[in-house]
Nucleic acid binder design. Structure first.
Lengths: 340, 340
DNA sequence: TGAAATAATGTAAGCGCTTACAGTAACCGC
DNA sequence: GCGGTTACTGTAAGCGCTTACATTATTTCA
């Protein structure tokens, strides 16, 4: 086995500066005093040699990777840009790099999760990208984890950060009922097993109930929080002769709302005159849709930032658990029928 | 120094299976034959022990990280979601993990790039996130690099993948001139030093010239391909008494176009009746804006996929260079004044 | 049937760092 | 002026893997 091509190592630096590698290492990591004279020499030599510590070697010896992992269910939704951005900022500021991967608990049995103890110092786990068993195993090993957009499974005291779904949805649907006199509100379910999805449905139902409207399973479609799927679901629904079966749509999230609006328009509905449409998330673009979308603002970038912050805390042994529930806020625009 | 908490190592597997660690390693990496009998035993033992090779140790010994790095200038634009998604898919399929970081060549002098030879096997470099010197240094060391949305500096034969900007812009602006009789077309420059920005300006100018319209520096603002900046730039411009100075806007990209539309609407302009607005990129949402945005479709996810593919090729020593120039296509919608 | 190739495995030397342990020299307080 | 600190530095043992080299058993083929 020969030396790594050209790479300059800590030995080169040590020799050039006339000190031992231990001193170099200590200076780099600032974990022991070094005489100012030596420090200066090292600064100079390291700059000259353009020395960069080899990450793997450092990881192996120190048992730290300097990496935090982000496990996502997918990436092709605009929802993720601010999430990742918030996380990346926070991580970068604290000297960590971000490893991003998609995975879904469905894949269980086959491939193991691509991120874990073996390659990161801690994990940010979005929604149901990991099974409860995976979480339990990792947590038992003392591995730092923060959940995003989901709460911990029973008896696993994992920190988590998510947003308030139910009451916001309740008020949103209530707005449809009270202000716009809607009675047959179509609901597009999000991904099954996803908490946001569950609580939004709960909020939807509780609003109906609070106003004496009976829940109708026939008015529930699967939107999966995805534009394309929502679009198809609605087309299918209309094709089945339900043209007049509804007077409003709560699309589950904004991405699905876009699909809904699209399908509706293609079928000649006017929004909001014929059908009101509301979403959830307040994506960056939702204010610019036609008509501007009434929705619920979820502070997604903040979710990312706080989740990263809590994980960083864990990495410094500031133990912490419990759920950070970020408040959401109804944003009334025109797609519900309000005239702003 | 004590043993790493609980982690199971290759030694545990070897002992449990009654073979040497070399055999285990060879089996894991499939780089030498192993008797079927031993193979079965190893499968069983590894599953039982839930063994996962320690990444850092593997990296150190093999001099491969299994990581590809993506260097971005920022992340808070919806443009990046499909880019990253395309890359992540491709990388994941080939067993690589994705390390994402933001950096900008402006930071030169101070911090070195967070990604490089020391922690990845290869780099995807977006636009001007790295200086030419950084690129040169890395390339001299034989480090695999693929450029995204920029071409290589002179005499550096780096592979790159980007999109056609100039002629699409030319045709887009020409459309404004010919079909909609626009004569005073405001242009919002993208980030300085960014190639997309340069070529779009070139296309804008060449269209003006081709139709006998003199280029007017007073009709150029700085939009930086960012909604907020474009929004502010336009407000400033209007505040300076330029209310009637223009009859159309080429915003540089869709994100900036959104800012422009917003500012314009707030000042009471009707789009496209009073002012036509066009962008570039065709973000997922552009079709849903009000009015739907006339723009140029850039195959961003494909850019990501191909860039990743080419980098993966490099990692397998399939040498390749040259620029992949993906075609773009004008998408006519209503913001230009067309009546669809 | 014997020499050479091939298959399957083991031994042990690193990969480039960190850090426990040890040591020397200067300093401090009384 | 002496025990106890404190400041700084070096030596060397790993961290958990990969792989060159060596070894033995089994085939292959002239």
């Amino acid at each position: 086995m020969t030396r790594r091509s050209n790479a300059v190592t800590i030995y080169d630096v040590a020799k050039q500066a006339g000190v031992s590698v231990a001193t170099v290492s200590r200076y780099i990591n600032r974990n022991a005093p070094v005489s100012t004279e030596v420090a200066e020499r090292l600064d100079r030599v390291m700059a000259e040699l353009k020395y960069l510590p080899h990450a793997a070697a450092r990881h192996l010896a120190s048992r730290k990777t300097g990496l935090i992992g982000l496990l996502l269910t997918n990436m092709h939704n605009d929802f993720f840009a601010p999430l990742v951005s918030g996380i990346e900022q926070m991580a970068g500021q604290h000297g960590y790099n971000l490893l991003v991967a998609t995975y879904h608990s469905d894949s269980r049995g086959s491939v193991p999760p691509p991120l874990g103890t073996h390659n990161t110092d801690g994990l940010l786990v979005f929604a149901d990208s990991l099974t409860d068993e995976d979480l339990a195993r990792l947590h038992e090993g003392g591995f730092p984890i923060v959940l995003i957009h989901r709460t911990p499974p029973a008896s696993l005291p994992l920190p988590s950060v998510t947003v308030e779904n139910k009451s916001a949805t309740h008020r949103l649907v209530e707005h449809l009922i009270l202000q716009h006199n809607k009675k047959r509100i179509l609901f597009l379910r999000g991904p099954i097993h996803q908490e946001d999805s569950y609580w939004r449905e709960t909020g939807y139902r509780s609003a109906l109930e609070a106003h004496g409207i009976e829940f109708d399973e026939g008015l529930v479609l699967v939107g999966d929080f995805e534009r394309e799927i929502a679009y198809n679901a609605l087309n299918q629904f209309l094709a089945n002769g339900n043209r007049d079966a509804f007077d409003a749509v709560f699309a589950g999230d904004d991405d699905a709302a876009i699909g809904v609006i699209n399908a509706l328009k293609e079928h000649g509905y006017r929004i909001p005159e014929d059908v009101a449409v509301v979403g959830f998330d307040d994506l960056q673009i939702s204010a610019f849709l036609s008509p501007p979308l009434t929705t619920v603002r979820a502070p997604t970038e903040t979710v990312g930032r706080i989740a990263a912050e809590r994980l960083l805390g864990l990495l410094n042994n500031d133990i912490s658990y419990g759920t950070t529930l970020l408040p959401t806020e109804i944003i009334i625009r025109r797609s519900c029928g309000c005239d702003l």
